[in-house]
Structure formats: C-alpha cells, structure tokens
Amino acid sequence: MHKKNIYLFSIFVILSAPVFSENRGFSLGLSGGAGISLTKDSRFAVKLQPGIDYHFSTEIPLFSDDFHIGSRIGYMHWLNSSLSKGILYRGYSSVYFGLSVSFRRRIPFKLFRTGISIGGRLIGEASINEYDYTYLDYFYPSAGIEAFAEFIPEFAPFISFIAVIPFIYNFRPDLQYSSSSPFSIRLKLYPVVLWRKL
C-alpha cells in the first residue's frame, strides 16, 4: 500500500509538473489510419494485405517538450491478401498494447506561426490476434519506428494534428517476414495547455 502511494504520487508529480513549467505537458491522442502489411510464408511469395488501424495513446514529456515517453492501446484489422496463384494470407484482427519513446524538434514553417514539429518514435508492441471467421488466437510482439510531423493550429494550441508514417516489424515465428505500415492521422489533446487557456 505504501509503495502504491509512492507510485501514485510520482505519476501526479510527472503529470502536474508541466502546469508550472513552460512545456506542453502530457497529451492524449486518437489515431486512425490505413495502410499495408507485407506477409511472407517461407513456402510462398510475399503479398500485401490492406488494413486499418485505430489507437488511443498518451505521452508524457520528460525534461522538455522534445523528449516523450508514451503508451498506446489499439485495434488493427488486416484484410486477406490477393488470391493470385491460388494462395492467400488470411485476414486477421489485432488488439495491441505498446510503449514508445519519441524525440521531436520544432522547425519554423511559414504557414503556421506555431511551427511544425518533426520527429521519430521507437515503439514496442505486444498483440493478441485472431484470424477472420475463426476463434483462433495467437500472440506476437512487434517493434518499429515512426516518422511524424505535428501541426499545432494557432486558434487552438491545446490540440495538434499529426501525420504518422510507421514501419512495424512483427516477430512472427510462423512467417518468414511480416511487417505493417498503417499510415495514420492523429489528433492530440494537451490538457495542460487547455487548462492554462481556461
């Protein structure tokens, strides 16, 4: 119980520290996107699987606005690949949890007085997956990188729009190769900035 209180107090300090400092504080994000997954069984040719990705994320700045740690929980669905030559890769759904670290730099941009931040993010994920039309569930971890650009509108600096181009490698033991790249648009809310505004 004592330990739990220490943890809770630490989280409170981390989350509330930005209120009294210059940085933008923690953020809550909602992402939606579509992309492709590349799949290859050792016996057959590589094929594309189109899919969608939705996830909810949160990030906390460490030391400054440039460096963040975060977590995410999301859902993906990948459709069947093409049927060419009589084989296909099965469509499947994933629910995943991930942790991330990101680094960003603000660069001046004439269109926005608030500028644009560009950056990169390292991601580690764990997912539970289920093939379409079945109740066959399986697990695999993934790791990846994301490049992103964040736009903060002048009229509402407590939100931002982020374009994300990820590359996620899936450590699937039953496949020779599996990766996914769900290009997404993320809407982020900065509660601390909103609180300051109010």
Binding site: N80, G86, R90, T134
Partner: peptide, 10 residues
C-alpha cells in the same frame, strides 16, 4: 475446427 497458420488456399 480448422487449422491455424497465416496461409489459406483457394
């Protein structure tokens, strides 16, 4: 029931 695996055949 059906087998698992990522591959399916026509």
């Amino acid at each position: 029931h059906i087998s698992g695996g990522a591959v399916d055949f026509v």
